[in-house]
Amino acid sequence: MSRQLQRKLFIAAFLVPTFLFFSVFVLYPVAKGAHISLFDWSGSSEHMTYVGLDNFKEIVRDPIVWKAIGNDYFLVLGKTIGIVLLATFFAVAVTRLRIRGASFFRIAFFIPNIISIVVIGVLWRFVYNPSIGFLNSFLSLFAAEPVNRPWLGEEGTALWSILWPSIWAGIGFYFLLLVAAIMGIPASLYEAAEIDGAKQGRQFWTITLPLVWEQVKVSVLHIVMTTLNGSFVMVLLMTEGGPDNSTQVLGSYLYQMGFRQFHMGYAAALGVVILIVSLLTTLVLQRLLRRDTVEYS
């Protein structure tokens, strides 16, 4: 066996199995989903009727889909801003501001990440409960009359009420990511800055932020992708998409259509839409976040 063949075999031995798994568990389902999206199929019938792009035409005309896309982006925007700002702030606080009990905060902020999302949903349903919830009891302390606002039951407040727990539950991981990045910055840089008379604010903008920009970027991308693909769990747990479809996101609407209203073809088409929306958003973000990488040498 020639050296070259050996080398090729060696490389193939690593790539082929991974690729096989990738094909079976990613490529095939995606292709199958796209295929089903061209059919009118209940999801339980033997018969599938080919309808071409009718499902997609229907999607364009469906007002709930547009509402859902809007809600998706509301959550994406809200979560990205909320999580990145807070996580960065907390990370800087526990590393650079020398506050007391930094290690306690590190654990405290991470705790929501190890709680199951289901528990978080149920927990926050209790917080928002109109009659016995924590939030209304708390607000009642400051009001003349007891507050009994159904936070999750009013169209104006329901989506906002889903946003807060999502942010609360999301901070921990990005917080740790940024803490690790900030701790990786050589202390000598900060020392030099201090000797030159730079205050904390100045240090943050000229040293910390440029040097953790890669991590911020990863955080933003990751938040955007997980929100577009995963926010339906929170929605299903807290409002089931209601009241009157006002908190529906694409994912929850897909579930509703596919498994509760028996339109699996339509649901598959929604899945394709989610895929396209996610890809486009990620591409746009990649461009927007492009910025010269700063490295310390």
Partner: peptide, 21 residues
């Protein structure tokens, strides 16, 4: 009709009923 009803799932509403609210 209880003002909070649109936000309640079955456990919530039944609990409030049992608590005589």
């Amino acid at each position: 009709i209880d003002q909070g009803a649109p936000a309640l799932n079955h456990t919530d509403s039944q609990m409030l009923f049992l608590q005589r609210k």
